[in-house]
Simulated assay, not measured.
Amino acid sequence: MKLTVLGCSGGIGSGRQTTCLLVDDDVLIDAGSGLTALDFEQLVKIDHVFLTHAHLDHVLGLPLLLDSVGDLRGAPVTVHALPEVLEVLSEHLFNWKLWPDFRRIPNAEAPWLRFEALAADGALTLDGRVFRPLPAHHVVPACGYHVATAAGSLAFSGDTGHSDALIAALNAIPDLRHLIIETSFENELKDIAILAKHHWPESLAAELQALRVAPEVWITHLKPGNEAAIMNEVRTAAPGWGVEALMQGQVITL
């Protein structure tokens, strides 16, 4: 399995793109502005999108994807997410007001878009890759994802603050090779991080301390302009982990 980072920033500007991860050439995890980095021919190949939550920086590329290539595909793009996330998309995005409902275009019998609700403890296997939701603690219903392959596992936290449930789930993955976890704010902005349910370096360090597995750790969702300061604080708070910032264009293989 190959995971390509199309976007991993907590914002935009100077080439930054928001969260979108490409698994091989047919699956997306989140659909932020990083989706716009794909060539047209690559867009046509996207069959499945796994969403962590419905915030705009994680879904804004999805309507444009469908509008651009929906008529060229032989099957609908399937969006997988928690039921509460799909409800938000139905009411506030694909509602004929902000954007057309592609579950009805060109008709309900042959649409360009299909929703498939994921149970919090469910799993879906696609060509030998198993996608499982992971617990997350955010201001809206959210999850992360565990992607399992025969060569090992990768976990992505999505947007989250402290979560005992997430740590327990990660500790239950003995072959966890890569952990992509968010840290959005510097320590001095701890109060904002708590309010928005995001990590700051000291809270991330506490999560890592609770891990009984030893994956490579990649930090994502850094706020624009603060990346270097946040990473310096992460390395100070969590010495010995060798944490690195996830980079746009990076490829992780399993």
Rank of each mutant, 00 (worst) to 15 (best):
G152C: 09
T4I: 07
R114P: 02
F185C: 06
S163N: 05
L113C: 09
C20W: 06
G11H: 09
I12R: 12
L118V: 02
A31K: 02
I180G: 02
C20H: 05
A136R: 02
H162W: 14
P141G: 07
D159N: 12
T78L: 06
A245M: 12
L3G: 04
S153G: 12
P135Q: 03
H198R: 15
H137K: 11
R73H: 11
V251W: 06
A165S: 13
K223C: 11
E244N: 12
S33F: 01
W112E: 03
D101C: 08
F131R: 05
G152P: 03
K223A: 14
A81S: 09
G32D: 02
L195D: 15
L166P: 03
A81Y: 01
T52G: 13
L21Y: 13
V5F: 02
A81I: 08
A172T: 05
S14G: 05
S153M: 02
M247K: 14
T236V: 14
V69K: 08
H178V: 13
A172K: 00
L64A: 13
V130G: 03
L134G: 07
A228K: 11
H199S: 04
D25S: 12
L66N: 03
D71W: 08
E116Y: 03
A148W: 01
G225R: 11
G74L: 10
G122M: 11
K190Q: 14
G15C: 09
L166F: 09
R114G: 04
D26H: 15
A172S: 12
D25P: 00
W218M: 08
G161C: 05
R235S: 06
G240M: 09
M1Q: 02
E233G: 07
D24N: 14
A136F: 03
D30E: 15
